[in-house]
Simulated scan of single mutants.
Amino acid sequence: MNDHDELGALLTASAPPAPDHAPAASLSLTVAREVVAADRGLQGRVRGLRRRHKVATAFTAAAIVLVPTGAFAAQHFLAQTGTYGNPALNGEFEDGSERINICAKDFADYVATLAPSTIQAAPGHSWQEYAEVTARSYAQEGGCTGTNQGLVQETMLRTQLLTMASGDWGCSLVWAGEDHDRSAASTARAAMVGLDSEARRLSPQEGTVGTWDPDGFLRISKDPKFVGCER
């Protein structure tokens, strides 16, 4: 099966965006996680993203005991653990960013603080929306019951937000082309480039970001079976 066949199979299985924001954002998350993998040129990047995600959530355990330090006590959210990854010991799976407890009651509020301040969310969406969907997806996967803690690094959360926005901006780019709207196309391109640059700044290790290059997104969207950007 070639790349386009794989892509078509994935996209045909995707449901068209729903009119309310939460399902639409969930679709963005699906596009970011699954559809990108159909392009073999990006497959290694996505595989690395999933590998780091798997290891991060594998920290879930009731036995985790954290001793508050001065730095930890100064944090504003219960989701912040005050502990950090050590890339020198486990560079393939973690960086030096803080480990965040996905089971904390203020996890969603914390994720909302991670949205970039210099890049707008895609039209029809908001960073708050992306944060809520991201927090919900991690909490559901983390098996948060009792006193369990599920840990994911801050960098993963930040790049997740960027990835979702990148997919939606990609659709805006597609629609701008259909409408022959050069101004909208230019805005979408600039946003996608900015999101990709920010994701790579946060996580320069190859295989850890899932944001889109504008031309790459356009290339994939031209597949006859592509349904990811239906209006």
Rank of each mutant, 00 (worst) to 15 (best):
A22I: 12
P23S: 02
A24P: 01
S26Q: 15
S26M: 12
L27Q: 08
L27C: 02
L27Y: 00
L27A: 03
S28N: 09
S28I: 02
S28V: 03
S28M: 13
L29C: 01
L29P: 02
T30R: 12
V31F: 04
R33P: 02
R33E: 13
E34G: 06
V35N: 01
V35Q: 05
V36W: 01
A37M: 11
A38L: 06
A38T: 02
A38G: 14
A38F: 03
D39G: 00
R40T: 11
R40Q: 14
L42N: 06
Q43N: 04
G44N: 07
V46K: 09
R47F: 08
G48Q: 01
G48I: 04
L49S: 04
R50V: 06
R50M: 05
H53Q: 12
K54P: 00
A56H: 12
T57D: 04
A58D: 14
A58E: 09
A58W: 06
F59T: 12
F59G: 06
T60L: 04
T60D: 06
A62H: 10
A63M: 08
A63Q: 11
A63F: 11
A63R: 12
I64W: 04
I64D: 05
I64L: 12
I64A: 11
V65Q: 13
P68D: 03
P68A: 01
P68F: 04
P68Y: 01
T69Y: 01
G70E: 13
A71H: 08
A71F: 03
